[in-house]
């Protein structure tokens, strides 16, 4: 099983949108995906039409062997399961502090379902916390959506610094998100970011109104408007990501 996380210290950059759309694209190419919604807001849970309920809350989840499995729910997407989020996740850091090995806690929870999924996608809240350290210690790649904005490079640098502190850090996989090619400032910033960050995945995701429809239809864009520019971008982006995960496959 490979593990990815959509992560950023900044909110509103498209983490959940990326997680749900990439899970959809992965699922339709025969990959078994477990989306684990770690954000107490539960946006991925909502989009995947799961009930926002962690029975017993996050307290009962952390540090208990086999505790994840009862929370796994099916979704309407081919090959995709979800561990839903609820508000109890706002205390996740507290519970991790009490765990014997906080940084290993999420990985240990995933161990029993390791063979059932090809990919686990962790959708993280925007923060730098114990939970994000545990996420970083768990995943093989960190998908970091960046919106072309003056502070984008600084945000990426913060994440890169976070990774440098790890003994076996995941790959940093920045994604250009919500790009408006018509805007000169976006084009210039994309150029700057591409030059400064060679790790940037080659496919950028355009800004599009159809993304907003995800919240209304509770479906990924690939299901709502499969031929739209943004759906095609996620399809290509998934191909980029899949090549990094299974290069010889």
């Amino acid at each position: 099983m490979q593990a990815l996380a959509t992560y950023s210290v900044k909110g509103g950059v498209g983490k959940t949108t990326t997680a749900v759309n990439l899970a959809f694209e992965a699922g339709r190419t025969g990959v078994r995906v477990l989306v684990w919604d770690l954000d107490p807001q539960g946006a991925a849970t909502f989009l995947l039409r799961a009930r926002p309920k962690l029975r017993g809350g996050s307290r009962k989840l952390v540090g208990r062997k086999g505790a994840l499995e009862p929370h796994i729910r099916s979704t309407d997407l081919d090959g995709v399961h979800v561990v839903p989020a609820d508000l109890s996740l706002r205390h996740l850091d507290l519970h991790l502090q009490r765990a014997q090995h906080p940084s290993r806690a999420l990985r240990d929870l995933l161990a029993p379902v390791h063979d059932r999924y090809d990919l686990v996608m962790l959708d993280c809240p925007p923060s730098i916390s114990l939970a994000s350290e545990s996420v970083i210690a768990t995943v093989d790649g960190l998908l970091v959506p960046v919106v072309p904005a003056p502070l984008a490079s600084r945000t990426l640098a913060q994440v890169a610094r976070l990774l440098r502190d790890q003994s076996d850090p995941p790959s940093l996989l920045p994604i250009l998100s919500m790009v408006e090619r018509r805007r000169k400032v976006h084009r210039e910033l994309v150029e700057e970011l591409t030059a400064a960050w060679p790790q940037l995945l080659p496919t950028s995701v355009p800004s599009a109104a159809v993304v907003e429809r995800m919240g209304i239809d509770r479906s990924p864009v690939g299901a709502i408007a499969p031929r739209s520019e943004v759906a095609l971008a996620y399809r290509t982006l998934w191909t980029d990501v899949a090549h990094t995960l299974w290069p010889a496959g």
Binding site: G30, V80, R116, A242, G249
Partner: peptide, 27 residues
């Protein structure tokens, strides 16, 4: 094993796994 069924859209029924796109499904 309780995992989700893996689904792969195909145009024809393969005779050999190498006829499928690379990735975990084929592997």
């Amino acid at each position: 094993d309780g995992g989700p069924p893996a689904v792969l859209v195909v145009e024809s029924v393969p005779r050999w796994p190498h006829e499928l796109p690379s990735g975990p499904f084929r592997t």
